[in-house]
């Protein structure tokens, strides 16, 4: 498996897309920091990128990689290798290289800016951790979709739909439910609804670290109380890892049964 991870990783690390992705973050980070000089504002903008672009790129890239490397995968399948090892290897290769682009692309300008001497280091750490977690989550979801659909168009369609569902539609339904049940106390519900969507969870984790959380008033205080405790921290990281592990487990199951 390690060999496959290494192969996929270096294959992708050499590809144009990874460079483009890396350069995009490098440019974005540099422009935001050095032309704006507002660290907190930069982190908010990056958070917006984090919750829209990172999932989108991870999904599309995951699906694309799977379809494009079909022949190579078939070749590997002919070898005496475990199927789960092949797909898990590919998965970690791609998620790892995307995460590396993200971490390096944002990390270099921030390090150059002198982040390590400022108090914002933890906010930035949360930003990177959630970014990496979202990459892993959406890549694993993408692999699931790609493995379940032989038809490329269908696969891409489902992938985009999934992204739309988690990044946009979920919040819409959430808001409708809040409006529908506004006579009831909704703090607990909104807490649960937030924790169950990785995109919302990442957003809230970053927002709570920033000054802007003061805008959230009473609800924000409830959230802060929950996420501020170690139990809240453990629970939210558990939730994020569950979002990685469950699709991963399903992916391995499909891969085992599938007729190639």
């Amino acid at each position: 498996m390690l060999k496959i991870i290494r192969y996929s990783f270096f294959d992708l690390a050499r590809s144009r897309w990874s460079y483009a992705y890396f350069l995009f973050y490098l440019l974005l980070g540099t422009v935001l920091l050095f032309l704006n000089n507002n660290l907190s504002g930069a982190i908010i903008t990056l958070m917006n990128v984090n919750i829209i672009l990172v999932p989108l790129i991870a999904t599309v890239f995951g699906v694309m990689y799977h379809y494009n490397s079909r022949e190579f995968t078939n070749l590997l399948l002919a070898q005496p290798l475990k199927r789960s090892a092949i797909f898990t290897g590919q998965y970690f290769g791609i998620a790892g290289s995307l995460s590396l682009s993200l971490v390096l692309g944002l990390g270099i300008p921030f390090a150059a800016y002198g982040l390590f001497r400022s108090a914002m280091i933890w906010n930035f750490a949360v930003l990177l951790i959630t970014g990496v977690a979202l990459t892993f989550i959406f890549t694993s979801l993408a692999f699931n979709i790609a493995l379940s659909n032989e038809n490329r168009i269908k696969g891409f369609g489902y992938a985009i739909l999934l992204w739309l569902l988690l990044a946009v539609v979920y919040d819409g339904i959430f808001l409708l439910l809040l409006a529908g049940f506004q006579e009831y106390p909704l703090e607990k519900f909104s807490l649960v609804a937030t924790v169950f969507n990785p995109v919302d969870l990442s957003r809230i984790l970053i927002l709570l670290k920033l000054d802007i959380s003061a805008l959230m008033g009473y609800t924000g205080a409830v959230f802060k109380q929950f996420f501020g405790t170690s139990a809240g921290g453990i629970f939210s990281s558990l939730m994020l890892s569950l979002w990685i592990l469950l699709p991963l487990w399903r992916m391995r199951r499909i891969a085992k049964k599938k007729d190639f």
Partner: peptide, 9 residues
């Protein structure tokens, strides 16, 4: 409570 959706897409 809708404020939890602050800055969401």
């Amino acid at each position: 409570e809708a404020i939890v959706l602050l800055r969401s897409t």
